[in-house]
Design a protein around this nucleic acid. Structure first.
Length: 572
RNA sequence: CGGGGUGUGGCCCAGCUUGGUUAGGGCGCCUGGUUCGGGACCAGGAGGACGGCGGUUCAAAUCCGCCCACCCCGACCA
C-alpha cells in the first residue's frame, strides 16, 4: 500500500489553533488527523490519516473481542424513547441525552449507550438457558450532549465506542466472562501501545458486583488514581487505602499545654516544636440521612498532615449528604477542638490516629492543647475507619511498597450489571428446571476515539506524535530529497523501494511533494510515522538513511538492503 | 450551571485604553525568478469590513447594551 503525499488530504498546520490546549488535541489538528466541524464544540470530522489510526485500533479490538467469543453486531444510533422509559432512564438521564422527535412527534434519542436496545433485542430472541451465554459487541457512534465538551476527542459530544454486553444464566458465568473480557482489555491496550492500569472503581448507584476502569496514566486525565509499582494494586484516590505509618507507642501520660494563639496545624507544630504528623486534627460535619434525620454532628479525626477524604467519611456515616459544620454548630472553640471529653458528636477516627501513639490534640479550651493523648486510653475513638486521602509515597495496602499517584484517562470499563436491565425490560429465559429467570448481564466499554487521544498523550514529543507501530497510520515514510538529477534519482529510488515494501505488506507514505527537505522532515516528525527512510545525497554512494521516529540517530544502510532493514523493523 | 477569557482573511496575532485616511503583520495560498538535508529568499498578487443585533456619535474594529459561539477553571457525568 503506497500513499503519495502530493495527493493526500493531509493538511498539516505549522501552528495549532488557539483553542486547542492538550497535546493530543493540538497534535491531532496539526497533524491533519481531524478537524472540528463548524462552530460546534465537541463535534469532529476524522480525516484520512485519523481514520486509518481509528481503523487500526478497531482491528485490534475486534481480534481480541472475537478471541474471547464476542460476536459483532450493530445496534441503532437512533433509539425509541419507550425503551428508555421502560428502564426509567428517560427521566434519569437529563440534559445529557440528545433527544429528537420524528415527523409524527414520536420521541427518540441518539444513543449515549446501548443497554436498553441490546436488552430489548435479547428479550425477543432468547428463550432458553441453552442459548446462553452470549457476548455481543459493536463499534458504534455514541452521543452525549456534554455540559462542557473539552479536550478534543477526550470529551467530545459525538464519539466512538466499542461496547459489549454479555448475558448469562448465573452469576458465576458472568464472573467468568468478566474475567475473560478483562484479559482481552489488557491485551488490547498493550497492543495499542498504551500504558494502562485496571483500577477498582465505584459501582455507583447501580451497585452490585465489581467494576474495573482501565485508566491510562496521563496529565490530561480526568481522575486521580493511586497505584503500586510492585503489585497490581490500583484504585481511584476516592477509594484508595494505605497502610498506617508506624508510630511509637506513647508511654507518657496525657498533659495539658498552653498554645495561645496557635490554631492551625502549622501554628501548633511550630509552637510546640513537633511535626504536623504528630498532631491529630478533628473536622466537624453535619449529616443528613435517607430516613429524614438531619443535623447530626459527626467528626473525623485524622493526622494533621493529611487530607480528609469526604467520600470515605460519608460512606462511614451512611449519610445521604454531608457538609462542613459552621462555627455556630460546633460548641467547642475552633482551632482548639479535640476528641478528649467530646460530647454530642459521632466520632470517626482514622486507624493511624487510633494506633497507639501519643497525639497532640485540641483540649476543647481556648488556647490549650493536650499532648500524648492516646486513643482508647484518653478518649473514645468511636468508629475506627480509614478517612485520609491516599497520596504518593504511602505504603501499598497489598504489599507495602510506596504508592504512586497519577492522573488517568479512562479508556475502558468492565461492569457486572446483574439483572437491572433484564428485570426492567423483562428479558428472561427458562432455566433447566423450566423456571423463568432474568438474564444476568455484564457490559464492557472501550472509548475508541478517546483511546486514540490517550495514545497521543502518552506518545509525543516536541516535534509531534510518536505512534506505536501497531496503530500508526503508515509504517514508513519515504522522503526523497535533492534537486536536479540527484532529485530525480531520489524519487526513482523511492518509488522502487515503495513498491518493494508495499509488496511485503508494509504501508508506505511517500513524500513526493515538491517541498524543501526541511518541510518534509518536519512533517514526517509531526505525523509520527515510526520509520523514516531518507533518499538523498548518500544515494551517490548507494546508501539511504533510516531513522526511527522514537530515536535520536539515523543509520546509513545500502539501498539494496533498505527493504530488508525496514521489513525487519515490522517483523515481516 | 457558576466564575474567568476570547471572537479581526484558511491558521497565529497586532490594532481597541485615548473613535477619524483605503484595517495591518507573520504563516499558508496564486504567478514569476533564485534556491534546495531540518518549516528558504526576492518581486508581484488574491483573499477580511472586524461574531450578530441594536444604540451613542458628524464619524465605531475601537464606546455602551443585549445576544451568540468558542476556550479555560469549577460543579456535573461514564
Amino acid at each position: 500500500m503506497i500513499a503519495r503525499m502530493s495527493r493526500l488530504l493531509l493538511p498539516t498546520l505549522r501552528e495549532a489553533p488557539s483553542d486547542a490546549d492538550l497535546p493530543s488535541h493540538r497534535l491531532m489538528l496539526r497533524a491533519g488527523l481531524m478537524r472540528r466541524v463548524g462552530d460546534s464544540a465537541g463535534i469532529y470530522a476524522l480525516l484520512p490519516l485519523g481514520l486509518r489510526v481509528k481503523a487500526k485500533i478497531e482491528a485490534i479490538i475486534r481480534e481480541e473481542m472475537d478471541g474471547v467469543g464476542g460476536q459483532e453486531l450493530v445496534l441503532p444510533i437512533v433509539q425509541p424513547a419507550e425503551l428508555w422509559q421502560e428502564t426509567g432512564r428517560w427521566a434519569v438521564y437529563g440534559e445529557e441525552m440528545w433527544r429528537l422527535k420524528d415527523r409524527h412527534g414520536r420521541l427518540y434519542c441518539l444513543g449515549p449507550t446501548h443497554e436498553e436496545v441490546v436488552t430489548d433485542l435479547m428479550r425477543h430472541e432468547i428463550r432458553s438457558w441453552r442459548q446462553l451465554p452470549l457476548l455481543v459487541y459493536q463499534i458504534q457512534n455514541k452521543y452525549r450532549d456534554e455540559r462542557r465538551p473539552r479536550f478534543g476527542l477526550l470529551r467530545a459530544r459525538e464519539f466512538i465506542m466499542k461496547d459489549a454486553y454479555s448475558f448469562h444464566t448465573d452469576q458465576q458465568d458472568l464472573e467468568r466472562c468478566y474475567r475473560s473480557v478483562y484479559g482481552a482489555y489488557e491485551r488490547i491496550f498493550r497492543r495499542c501501545g498504551l500504558d494502562c492500569r485496571a483500577v477498582l472503581a465505584d459501582s455507583g448507584a447501580i451497585g452490585g458486583s465489581a467494576t474495573h476502569e482501565f485508566m491510562a496514566p496521563a496529565d490530561a486525565g480526568e481522575a486521580e488514581i493511586v497505584f503500586c509499582g510492585r503489585c497490581d494494586y490500583a484504585v481511584d484516590v476516592e477509594r484508595g487505602e494505605a497502610l498506617p505509618r508506624p508510630r511509637p507507642v506513647a508511654r507518657r501520660p496525657m498533659a495539658h499545654v498552653a498554645t495561645p494563639g496557635a490554631r492551625s496545624i502549622a501554628d501548633v507544630a511550630a509552637f510546640l516544636g513537633v511535626r504536623p504528623e504528630e498532631i491529630a486534627k478533628i473536622l466537624f460535619y453535619q449529616a443528613t440521612y435517607g430516613d429524614g434525620r438531619t443535623g447530626e454532628s459527626v467528626a473525623a479525626l485524622i493526622p494533621g498532615d493529611r487530607e480528609l477524604n469526604e467520600v470515605k467519611l460519608q460512606m462511614a456515616t451512611g449519610a445521604l449528604e454531608l457538609r462542613p459544620a459552621t462555627a455556630e454548630e460546633v460548641d467547642v472553640p475552633l482551632g482548639y477542638a479535640g476528641p478528649v471529653g467530646l460530647r454530642g458528636v459521632r466520632l470517626f477516627t482514622d486507624p493511624e490516629v487510633a494506633a497507639g501513639a501519643g497525639w497532640v490534640v485540641g483540649a476543647n479550651e481556648d488556647g490549650r492543647h493536650l499532648r500524648d493523648a492516646v486513643a482508647g486510653r484518653d478518649f473514645d475513638p468511636g468508629t475506627i475507619i480509614g478517612l485520609s486521602t491516599v497520596r504518593a509515597g504511602d505504603a501499598c495496602p497489598g504489599c507495602g511498597a510506596p504508592l504512586a499517584a497519577r492522573r488517568g484517562i479512562e479508556v475502558g470499563q468492565v461492569f457486572g450489571l446483574g439483572t437491572k436491565y433484564s428485570t426492567a425490560l423483562k428479558a428472561t429465559f427458562l432455566d433447566a428446571q423450566g423456571r423463568e429467570q432474568p438474564m444476568i448481564m455484564g457490559c464492557y466499554g472501550i472509548g475508541v476515539t478517546r483511546t486514540m487521544a490517550a495514545i497521543i498523550e502518552q506518545h509525543h514529543d516536541v516535534d509531534g506524535i510518536v505512534w506505536p507501530a501497531s496503530v500508526a497510520p503508515y509504517h514508513v515514510a519515504l522522503v526523497p530529497v535533492g534537486t536536479g538529477d540527484e532529485g530525480r534519482r531520489a524519487v526513482a529510488a523511492a518509488e522502487t523501494l515503495a513498491t518493494e515494501l508495499s509488496g511485503l505488506g508494509i504501508e508506505v507514505l511517500l513524500d513526493d511533494r515538491d517541498e524543501r527537505p526541511g518541510v518534509k522532515f518536519k512533517d514526517a516528525d509531526l505525523l509520527g510515522i515510526p520509520l523514516r527512510v531518507t533518499l538523498g545525497r548518500a544515494l551517490a554512494e548507494g546508501r539511504v538513511e533510516v531513522k526511527r521516529r522514537a530515536a535520536q540517530d539515523a543509520e546509513l544502510v545500502p539501498l539494496a538492503e533498505a527493504t530488508r532493514v525496514t521489513a525487519a523493523v515490522f517483523g515481516n
